[in-house]
């Protein structure tokens, strides 16, 4: 299992569209993904779960990936967050 802390830098944080993009990528991989913020840990393949975090700009998220393709998935997710979800 690999973990990484990432800070949200896009304007809207994990709003509907960013959350959808996040879960879309997460669902394409076999590895399991969990996201945690403030002690709440959810399955990142569930869009409702991701939105429940209500993570806004500046929030620090902990990503945990576990499975055969964990590194590739982690890279993709971090890339998405660092590129501000390609939106703003």
């Amino acid at each position: 299992m690999i973990t990484k802390d990432v800070t949200l830098i896009n304007k809207l944080g994990l709003h509907i569209r960013p959350a959808a993009q996040f879960t879309k990528i997460a669902s394409q991989y076999a590895a399991s993904v969990f996201l945690s913020k403030d002690g709440i840990r959810i399955n990142a393949k569930s869009i409702m779960g991701v939105m429940m975090l209500a993570a806004n700009r500046g929030a620090v998220l902990k990503i945990e990936c576990d499975g055969p393709d964990e590194q590739e998935l982690m890279d993709k997710l971090v890339e998405l967050i660092e590129n501000k979800f390609y939106e703003d």
């Binding site: 509907i16 569930s46 409702m48 939105m51 429940m52």
Partner: peptide, 16 residues
């Protein structure tokens, strides 16, 4: 459930 999500639900192909 959660305060925020209430009884919202995601149905694939339809949305929230």
């Amino acid at each position: 459930g959660s305060e925020l999500l209430k009884h919202f639900m995601e149905i694939r192909g339809v949305g929230i």
